[in-house]
C-alpha cells in the first residue's frame, strides 16, 4: 500500500462554517503539512479523519481502511498528538503505559522505556508535572511504542518554545527515515514546515486551496517588490495580495504571471507569505 491516508471529497457543515470537498493523499514515508489560518478547517479535517465528527459526505481511508466501517483496524496503527495532553493529569507515566498499552497488541514496553529515556521523561512523574513540551513527547512516545505507521499531529507546536519545536521536527524527521512511516502535521506556524514537510495541503475558509509537493507549492508563487509609483491599478488587480509601505509595496503573484511584473524585483515566497497574502482574499493589505 502506497498511500497511508486518502481523503476524498470530505465535507462537513456546521452552523456558520462549512468544510467543503477536501481531497488529498499522503503517501507512505512522507510528512505532509496541513496549513491554513485559524478557523480554516484544519482541526475539523483531522477530527473527521479520526471519526470524532460525523462527516456530511466524502470518504477517508487510513492505511487502506475506511475510517468508519473499519474504525478499529484503521486506528490500530495510528498515532495522534493534539495541541494539549489527553491523559489524566493524575496518572503517573507508568500508569499511562498501563492504561494505553492494553489496547495495542504490538505495544513494546522496552521501546517505550527507551523513548522516555531519549526524551528525558522520568517514569515516576505525574502527567501534570510535565511541561507542555514533555507532554507532547509523552504522546509521541506512546505512538512510537506500538509502531504507529501514520502519525497525525494537530497543532503540536503551538505554545512550544523554539527549542522544543526544533526537537519535534528532528524527531519527526527521524521517524519517517525508514520510509515506512508518514506524518500529517497541522500547524499555523508554517516555518516549521519549510524544514520538515514534503507535501502541503492548504485549506482556506473551509475549501482546499492546494494539495501537493511543498516545492511545487512554493514554485507556484513569487513575491514582487517595487516602489509605490510602479503599482498600477491594472497590476494590482492581478496580484493575489498586496502589502503597502510608505516607500513601496510587496505583493504575492503567480509565478506563471511573472512576465507581467518583469520590471519589479521578484523573490521566492515562503509558506508564510502565501498563507498570509492569500488569506486576505486578494484584498490590499494595509
Amino acid at each position: 500500500m502506497n498511500d497511508y491516508l486518502e481523503v476524498k471529497n470530505l465535507s462537513k457543515s456546521f452552523e456558520g462554517f462549512r468544510l467543503h470537498d477536501i481531497t488529498f493523499t499522503l503517501p507512505k514515508g512522507y510528512i505532509m503539512g496541513l496549513i491554513g489560518p485559524n478557523g480554516s478547517g484544519k482541526t475539523t479535517t483531522i477530527k473527521l479523519i479520526l471519526n470524532m465528527l460525523k462527516r456530511t459526505s466524502g470518504e477517508v481511508k487510513i492505511l487502506g481502511f475506511d475510517n468508519i466501517a473499519n474504525e478499529q483496524e484503521a486506528k490500530r496503527n495510528l498515532g495522534v498528538v493534539f495541541d494539549s495532553n489527553y491523559f489524566s493529569d493524575e496518572w503517573k507515566i507508568s500508569q499511562v503505559e498501563k492504561s494505553v498499552s492494553a489496547f495495542y497488541e504490538n505495544w513494546n514496553t522496552q521501546k517505550f522505556s527507551e523513548t522516555l529515556k531519549k526524551f528525558h521523561i522520568q517514569p515516576s512523574k505525574k502527567v501534570k508535572e510535565l511541561s507542555k513540551g514533555m507532554q507532547m513527547k509523552l504522546m509521541l512516545a506512546c505512538a512510537f511504542s506500538y509502531d504507529a505507521k501514520l502519525l497525525i499531529l494537530d497543532e503540536p507546536t503551538s505554545g512550544l518554545d523554539p527549542v522544543s519545536r526544533d526537537e519535534l521536527l528532528h524527531i519527526l524527521s527521524e521517524y519517517i527515515e525508514d520510509g515506512e512511516h508518514s506524518v500529517l502535521f497541522s500547524t499555523h506556524l508554517t516555518r516549521d514546515l519549510e524544514r520538515a514537510a514534503d507535501y502541503i495541503t492548504y485549506i482556506r475558509y473551509g475549501e482546499l486551496f492546494f494539495s501537493g509537493g511543498k516545492d511545487e507549492f512554493l514554485d507556484l508563487f513569487r513575491i514582487v517588490k517595487g516602489g509605490r509609483e510602479e503599482l498600477t491599478a491594472d497590476l494590482s488587480k492581478k496580484m493575489l495580495g498586496i502589502r503597502n509601505f510608505s516607500t513601496g509595496f510587496e505583493a504575492l503573484v503567480k509565478t506563471e504571471d511573472l512576465k507581467q511584473y518583469a520590471h519589479l524585483n521578484a523573490e521566492p515566497a515562503t509558506i508564510d507569505d502565501i498563507v498570509v497574502f492569500t488569506s486576505k482574499r486578494g484584498e490590499p493589505y494595509e
Binding site: 479520526l50 471519526n51 470524532m52 474504525e71 478499529q72 483496524e73 484503521a74 486506528k75 490500530r76 495510528l78 495522534v80 493534539f82 494539549s84 495532553n85 489527553y86 491523559f87 489524566s88 493529569d89 493524575e90 494505553v100 489496547f103 495495542y104
Partner: peptide
C-alpha cells in the same frame, strides 16, 4: 468528570476500540 476535566474524549477517540 475525570474524562471531561482532562479532555480525555480525545484519547477515547483515538483508541482502537468500538
Amino acid at each position: 468528570s475525570v474524562t471531561e476535566k482532562n479532555s480525555m474524549e480525545r484519547l477515547y477517540g483515538i483508541l482502537p476500540i468500538r
